[in-house]
Design a protein around this nucleic acid. Structure first.
Length: 263
DNA sequence: ATGGTTGAGGTTCAA
């Protein structure tokens, strides 16, 4: 089973690129974040025509939004509203009667890494704490589950272009990394990508739009993740990060991450 | 220290 996750940064603007991705990588399940579309604005027919008729779509006006489109039958299990906000950051599905898959878009957290001074950063930390509690209260490490999405945190030193220079930058601060590791430890989640690509190797999934030349400066961060619970750890086969997608015409600032599971 | 770009939806906010 091939799972792809991609922060598409507007599903309507970038639908042609999503169809390119489907043609190139042929995932069984494609998880999208930042669709920036109301549910009735989601290009459901186009994905269905491309072979992905099974869909779970959560949207709001203008911002956020997540979706799962699938070749295999999926059954929506939940759409959690974290922090009491209907802000379209989560949907979970059961894939073909098998593993449950959580698709998440964690709040970016603004610019200032201080929850007192910056409500967006406080929201990010609250979101992570609630995610940890909710998973611990409602799910078990024995269940085969997949968690994907734009988690907006680069946990390892080699997940950023400069560990030292990003220690004070939202996405790589110790408090965020600790929160992410806490969620991971909760159900024993395995980082599927780092399971196959050694931590010594630098790996990014996002490059800012603001760089003059994203490839030349290569100041990236690994913000997009695929995790699995222990029962699926041995099933993780190939993983890939489609760096080339950052160079596509009208590219998203994030690139797709693809994981193959032997189920 | 600052500014740089993109997208949605409007006459700015979020990233």
């Amino acid at each position: 089973m091939r799972i792809a996750t991609w922060n598409i940064n507007s599903v309507r603007l970038r639908l042609p690129r999503a169809l390119d991705l489907i043609a190139e990588a042929a995932p069984d399940v494609l998880c999208l974040q930042e669709t920036k579309a109301l549910e009735d604005q989601f290009p459901a027919a186009a994905f269905a025509e491309a072979g992905y008729p099974h869909q779970a779509v959560v949207g709001m006006k203008g911002y956020n939004g997540v979706a799962v489109v699938s070749r295999l039958p999926i059954e929506e299990t939940e759409r959690r509203e974290f922090c009491g906000r209907a802000d379209a950051r989560h949907v979970s599905v059961r894939i073909d009667g098998g593993p449950e898959l959580h698709n998440l878009y964690v709040p970016a957290g603004g610019d200032v890494p201080d929850p007192q001074a910056n409500p967006k950063f406080a929201h990010k930390l609250e979101f992570l704490a609630e995610l940890r509690r909710w998973l611990a209260d409602t799910r078990s490490a024995a269940q085969p589950m997949i968690l994907v999405g734009d988690l907006n945190i680069a946990p390892l030193e080699t997940d950023v272009w400069s560990h030292k220079q990003l220690l004070d930058v939202v996405s790589h601060t110790p408090v965020e990394v600790d929160a992410l590791c806490g969620i991971q430890a909760g159900l024993g989640w395995v980082d599927a990508v780092r399971h196959r690509i050694p931590a010594e190797q630098r790996l990014y999934t996002w490059w800012s739009y603001r760089a003059r030349d994203w490839a030349l400066s290569d100041r990236g961060r690994r913000l997009d993740h695929v995790w699995v619970t222990p029962p699926l750890a041995g099933a993780v086969d190939g993983v890939s990060v489609l760096r080339a997608a950052r160079g596509w015409e009208k590219a998203s600032d994030h690139v797709p991450v693809i994981v193959d599971l032997k189920l």
